[in-house]
Structure formats: structure tokens, C-alpha cells
Design a protein around this nucleic acid. Structure first.
Length: 729
DNA sequence: AAGTTCCGAGTTTTT
DNA sequence: CTCGGAACTT
């Protein structure tokens, strides 16, 4: 391994980070400053220069994609693939540990991971069982409560006593836990909490992993939650070899439990932390960075950093004011088309928005303009109902006692087993503390289940057993094929009305194909077999592995296809970059979101989101807004986003005018200082008409009109964009 | 039990 | 508008 090649092409700061002496490191890495590069090169450096064994390295990320990328790049840099190195998501790593130490963690050997959707179903059942009014006690809220508690490391008994609300949620949490225990299922937050508790309870195990993982590296540190942070302290606190890489200005998941403070407190908790800032940006033009810096400076409590670039200023940031969302979308599509016609590629273009609902108008515009586009977000592959149905069959084939799967498909397609029958089976199962499958078998034998239901249920049991028998010793995709087709699911979903039926049929077929791919290359970065076994690793089946992966990687295989414009929310754009970026819907109430309203800190987070969006752009950035927008079935009129006011005006350029930006009018609320000149009563001068006084303002952006009373000429309506008024006073 | 219609709510979502 | 859940039929 060649040490000089590891350092090649790194700037001074990056090199400092990569070659820092062993110890705790906090890398404050601005957008586009090469943070993944630093992480990967640090890993290579540790192995090549510090003589660290890959076996002793644990690198943690938040997404499977990031984990895969990190591993691939580290392997490319080191000639020998460091297979023994652990690289994965927090959840993937916790899962792996729990599979190895299931007994010590108090889990059944074949525990199963449930996703957010399954969790919600279970919570609903708890609420119903406790006779809580679903209006007053929404399942989402309870699930949110439970997850928040787990993310703070709290079991029901640890939740501080509180008012009626808290006490009720606590009881729900308790009952939910019991349900999970009985079903042998583990939700996402539980993976982390269990793992943490495992270490707390078993000092010997903790000691083992502390010794083993002498080097911890954490990506996107600003997104860690309380529990993840606590686990890192537990594992790395004394060893003192933690490299945390993050950017407090890109913290946009506080609503999901992420604690930006973790990055602030890191030096307090990790001894002798060396802080290195990466501020040189290799992505964007100077103007784009100036816009981003100017905006984010308005936030308080930052670690503080300012991006700079050696590249030139580039073009101004363009601001477009559309009449409505259709026109805004058309502008985006037209501009995209022009980019492509000038030799650019469609996949160099990113179109960002605050909420998914905004994608529709854009989609239609791209469709009409005949430009290929791809929408990210929404339901991922393994989250789709039809796919989850098929997975439930597969789960049952794998483990007959999987109650969550049982309930999901016992009557799907409909086979005469209604809510009443299912309710009876559930109650009996609960009474006896056995699975629903077991209960049905016993219930039929004992006659507790009436003939009619018994026949239907018996048929279902026989069906699953038959699949299992047929599939014995066959490949994964045979199991899938069987579960998709012989179950009747394919026919059931295919006959759903309209395009939905077609799409669902295709998805089920795709599932079988995904199984084939999984058998062929098993390329999951989380695949435990990819690395050296570490003790109690059990032999595992392809089917179980596939189901685990489906739960942990809901759909990384997004359709790739040819070059296409990428449409996505600002949140999903984090970590990506595009030569040409549009941030659409720059309107108060939309972005910043209305929900960000008064709540403390929320507006700062919206601003960080804007910062994230702006810093996605490499060469060209457009900010667009619409005067009226069709939302929730009606037209709504929103004033321009405050962020348009907050971005340094000298970086902006109005699209239509091609000159300096005229500040758009504020439609509601107090006008800002910058608008003072446009307020009623303001004195202005017009090239032809001379001096006058503003009587009225209407509209905004390039449709903004003002009525001005000119001395001796009377009042005239002028288009603000064209009138070129000079402000007096 | 299954299919239909009606009503009301409606950010963001790495795992 | 557009989805999901509840209430209402058949």
C-alpha cells in the first residue's frame, strides 16, 4: 500500500484530517468540501500508515447507499479489500450485532424487523384494544411518541410521570412492547435501543467490542439522535479514537430525533478532540456559495464556517416569479430543455421542492415538454402494499409464527376470513401466548373455531404449508414466484382498476426479479457473510437474509434507466449535486413550511434546508416561485419566501428583467425594510413621467404592478418589472 | 364478508 | 385534488 497515493490530491485541511494522529477528531465539513473523501482516505491512512487492522475499524453512516459507497471507495484505495472492516448504517450494524447476540439481547433467534408501516398497524391494534378513540389518540402520534422515547433511550418505566396524555401514551407504549415481544418483532428504533442495552447489561461484551473496534468513524454526525450518540460514547468514549464528520448547517432531521447539539457537544464528551474545518468547496461557483453563506449566516448558534471556492463567480442565481404553479413548472421544463439543447444532459438537472405534493405540476410540465424525468421519494419498492403482501407470504413460508405477516395476508386475496374471525384468533393467541398460526391449528382441532371459519383458515394454512413443501430446497426466486402467483396475489392485484393494477402486477414481477438478483450477487454492504464472522454467527438462509434486507433497505434499487431530470424533495437531495438546480415553490407557507411557524428553532431548520438546496448546485441555480398555487383543491396565494429576501441581493438576478432584482412585494405581513420603497406613499421617479407617489401595489414578482400618482399627470398603473422606477427618499 | 360511497385531513422520512 | 379510513350497502 502506497501512502503517498493516499494523500494525493488532498488539500491541506483534508490532509490534516486524514493524517491526524490517533485520537478524537471532529471534522466540520461544509457542503461539497469532500467529506466522504476524507472519511475514505482516513480509513486507508489508518490501515496503511498507522498499521490499524481493518478488523478494528467500524464506519457508520445513515443510509445504505452511503455505506456501500464508502466501502467501495475504501476498497478501491486499499489494494487488499478490507473485508473484515465493518461498514454499515447504524441500524444495519445494530441488526448484525443482535443477530449474533440474540440470546444475550433477550430476543428470539428468528426475530424479525418491522418497518414503520407494520409498526403503525401494531400501534393501531393496541389503541383499539385499549378502547382509545382514534380521533383523539391518532396512531401516528402514538407511534411517534414510542419512537421518540426509544430514541431517548427510554423504556416505558423510564418515561417520567406526566399528565394524562403522557400516562396514556406510556400505557400504549407498554402494550406495544408486549405485542412486539409476543410476535418476536423489532422496530427500527428497537434495533438501536436493544443494542445499546446489550452493551450496558453485558460489560464483557461491551469490553470485547471496545477492544475490537479501536477506530470509529461516523458520517453525517449532525443527524445522530440521542441514543446513537450515547452508543457512540459507550463504544468509543474511553478508546478515544472517534472521527465524527458532519455539518451543523446541514442538520435537517431534528423532527426525526436528530440532535444537532451532538456535534456541538462532541468536544466536551470526547477527550482532546481535534477540530478541523473543511471549508473549501469543490462543487459550486463563488456566487452560489455567497448566496448560501449569506443565508445561513442568519442562523444563530452555529459552529460557524464559511465556504469558499477557488473557482470563479459563475453566473448569478436566477429568480423566477411565475403567475401560477403551472407557469412555474413550464419555466422549469423550458429551462431544462434549453440546457439539454445546449448539449447538457438531463441527469445533470435536479428539481427540488419542499413537499411531495408539488411534484405533480412539474411532472406534467416535463411530460408535456417530452423531457425524461424521474421522481424520487414516495413509497419505495419494498414499502409498496403489493410487495409487502408478497413478502408476508414469504415470511410465513420461512417462519409460520410470524403473526404480523399472518394478519396481513390471511385474508388476502379475500378468502372468507373476516375481521371477526381474525379477532377471535388474535384473542385466543394472546390468551395462550402462542402464535396465531399455532392457535388456528389448535382451535380447529379443539372445535373452538367454528366450522365455517375453520374451513377457510384451514385452507390458508394448507396453502402456506404447500408452498413450503413445494419450495423445499428450491431457490429464493422460486419461493417468491410461488408466493406471488400461487397465492392468488398477482391475480388479485392485477385486477385492481386502471393503471394501478398494471403497476402492482409489474411490481410483483419485479420482486421475483429482485430475488434472482439477490441470489446472484448478494451485494448488500450489510451482508454479514461479506465480513469475517465474529463469534456466534448462525448459519442463515437466503430467504431470511432477503427478508431482512427488504426490511432494512426499503428500496435502494430505484429504477435507474436512462438520463433523466431528477425531481425530489429538498430532504432527499441532501448529499447529491447537480450542475443545474431548481428550487421551486419559494413561497411563505410552502418553503418555509407553514408548519415551521412559531415553533422555536423550526425556522432555522427550514433555513438550513434552503442552505442544503442551494449548495446542491454546481454551476447554475434557479429559485422559482408562483404567485398562485393549486393546493388542496383550491388556489392559494402565498407571498414570496423570506429566504429570497435573506439571500444577498447582489447574487440574485431576476429572470425576466435580466438585470438587478426588483425585490418582490410582500403580499401579507409587515413589509420588510427592503420593501420600504415600494410601500404605499413611497416617492418614486419614472424616466418619462417624472416624480410621483405610490398609491397602491398589486401582485408580486414580475407581475407586480403599482399605481403611482404623478404630479400633473394623474395616476398610472405601471408594471414594476418594466417601469424601472427610481426610489426617492 | 365484501364491495361501495362518503368524509376529512393534508411537511419533510436516511432506517 | 387525492388518499385512507369509516360508515354504509349488498
Amino acid at each position: 500500500m502506497d501512502i503517498t497515493s493516499i494523500l494525493e490530491g488532498l488539500n491541506d485541511r483534508q490532509r490534516e484530517a486524514v493524517t491526524a494522529p490517533l485520537g478524537n477528531l471532529l471534522i466540520v465539513a461544509g457542503a461539497g468540501s469532500g467529506k466522504t473523501r476524507v472519511l475514505v482516505h482516513r480509513i486507508a491512512w489508518l490501515v496503511a500508515a498507522e498499521g490499524v487492522s481493518p478488523h478494528g475499524i467500524l464506519a457508520v453512516t445513515f443510509t445504505n447507499k452511503a455505506a456501500a459507497e464508502m466501502r467501495a471507495r475504501a476498497e478501491a484505495l486499499l489494494s487488499a479489500p478490507p473485508r473484515a472492516m465493518w461498514v454499515g448504517t447504524f441500524h444495519g450494524i445494530a441488526h448484525r450485532l443482535l443477530r449474533m447476540h440474540w440470546r444475550d439481547a433477550g430476543l428470539p433467534e428468528n426475530f424479525q424487523i418491522i418497518d414503520a408501516d407494520d409498526q403503525l398497524r401494531l400501534v393501531k391494534r393496541v389503541l383499539r384494544a385499549q378502547n382509545l378513540d382514534e380521533q383523539r389518540w391518532p396512531a401516528r402520534q402514538s407511534a411517534g411518541f414510542i419512537n421518540a422515547q426509544k430514541e431517548e433511550g427510554r423504556r416505558p418505566r423510564d418515561v417520567p410521570a406526566g399528565d394524562h396524555f403522557t400516562e396514556t401514551q406510556k400505557r400504549v407504549y407498554e402494550a406495544y412492547e408486549a405485542l412486539c415481544r409476543q410476535g418476536g418483532v423489532v422496530d427500527f428504533a428497537e434495533l438501536l435501543l436493544r443494542c445499546h442495552e446489550l452493551w450496558l447489561d453485558r460489560e464483557d461484551l461491551l469490553e470485547h467490542y471496545r477492544r475490537r473496534f479501536g477506530q470509529l468513524l461516523v458520517d453525517e454526525f449532525q443527524d445522530t439522535n440521542t441514543l446513537q450518540y450515547a452508543s457512540l460514547r459507550l463504544l468509543g468514549g474511553s478508546a478515544g479514537n472517534v472521527m465524527a464528520v458532519g455539518d451543523d448547517d446541514q442538520s435537517i432531521y431534528s423532527w426525526r430525533g436528530a440532535r444537532m447539539e451532538n456535534i456541538h457537544r462532541f468536544p466536551e464528551h470526547f477527550r482532546d478532540t481535534r477540530i478541523i474545518r473543511l471549508e473549501q468547496n469543490y462543487r459550486s461557483t463563488g456566487t452560489i456559495l455567497k448566496a448560501a453563506n449569506g443565508l445561513i449566516e442568519r442562523n444563530a448558534g452555529r459552529l460557524g464556517k464559511s465556504l469558499w471556492t477557488a473557482a470563479g463567480d459563475g453566473e448569478p442565481v436566477s429568480v423566477y416569479h411565475g403567475y401560477n404553479d403551472t407557469e412555474e413548472a413550464r419555466f422549469v421544463a423550458d429551462t431544462a430543455r434549453a440546457w439539454i439543447e445546449r448539449g447538457g444532459s438531463a441527469d445533470e438537472i435536479g428539481v427540488l421542492y419542499r413537499s411531495n405534493a408539488q411534484s405533480r405540476a412539474l411532472e406534467e410540465a416535463f411530460l408535456r415538454a417530452d423531457i425524461a424525468y424521474r421522481i424520487y421519494g414516495g413509497l419505495r419498492f419494498f414499502e409498496r402494499a403489493e410487495v409487502k403482501n408478497a413478502l408476508a407470504y414469504m415470511r410465513l413460508v420461512s417462519s409460520r409464527h410470524a403473526d404480523v405477516a399472518f394478519e396481513r395476508v390471511v385474508n388476502l386475496p379475500p378468502r372468507g376470513i373476516g375481521a371477526k374471525t381474525v379477532g377471535l384468533v388474535r384473542a385466543l393467541a394472546r390468551e395462550r401466548g402462542v402464535s396465531m398460526w399455532q392457535t388456528v391449528k389448535e382451535g380447529i382441532a379443539s372445535g373452538e373455531i367454528k366450522a365455517r371459519a375453520a374451513a377457510a383458515l384451514g385452507g390458508f394454512l394448507a396453502l402456506i404449508d404447500e408452498f413450503a413443501a413445494q419450495v423445499e430446497g428450491r431457490s429464493l426466486h422460486d419461493v417468491a414466484q410461488c408466493c406471488v402467483e400461487a397465492s392468488g396475489l398477482l391475480a388479485h392485484h392485477a385486477k385492481e382498476p386502471g393503471e394501478r393494477g398494471v403497476a402492482r402486477k409489474e411490481n410483483l414481477e419485479e420482486l421475483v426479479a429482485a430475488c434472482r438478483r439477490f441470489e446472484r450477487d448478494r451485494l448488500s454492504p450489510l451482508d454479514p457473510r461479506g465480513a469475517q464472522a465474529d463469534g456466534a454467527d448462525e448459519p442463515s438462509s437466503t430467504l431470511e437474509d432477503f427478508l431482512d434486507q427488504a426490511a432494512l433497505e426499503a428500496g435502494e434499487y430505484q429504477a435507474e434507466g436512462g438520463a433523466a431530470v431528477q425531481l425530489m424533495t429538498l430532504h432527499s437531495a441532501k448529499g447529491l449535486e447537480f450542475p443545474l438546480v431548481f428550487i421551486t415553490g419559494m413561497e411563505e407557507g410552502l418553503f418555509p413550511s407553514r408548519m415551521a411557524g412559531e415553533e422555536l428553532g423550526r425556522m432555522d431548520e427550514e433555513r438550513r434546508l434552503a442552505y442544503v438546496g442551494i449548495t446542491r448546485a454546481m454551476r447554475r441555480l434557479y429559485l422559482t416561485r408562483a404567485e398562485s398555487r393549486f393546493i388542496h383543491g383550491t388556489d392559494s396565494y402565498n407571498p414570496p419566501s423570506r429566504f429570497l429576501q435573506e439571500i444577498p441581493v447582489e447574487t440574485l438576478q431576476d429572470v425576466r428583467l435580466g438585470g438587478a432584482l426588483k425585490r418582490p412585494l410582500q403580499r401579507n405581513g409587515a413589509p420588510r425594510d427592503e420593501d420600504a420603497a415600494l410601500r404605499i406613499g413611497a416617492r418614486v421617479r419614472h424616466a418619462k413621467f417624472g416624480e410621483g407617489v405610490v398609491l397602491r401595489c398589486e401582485g408580486g414578482g414580475d407581475r407586480a404592478r403599482v399605481e403611482v400618482n404623478f404630479a400633473g399627470l394623474g395616476s398610472k398603473w405601471l408594471m414594476l418589472g418594466y417601469a424601472n422606477l427610481e426610489m426617492l427618499d
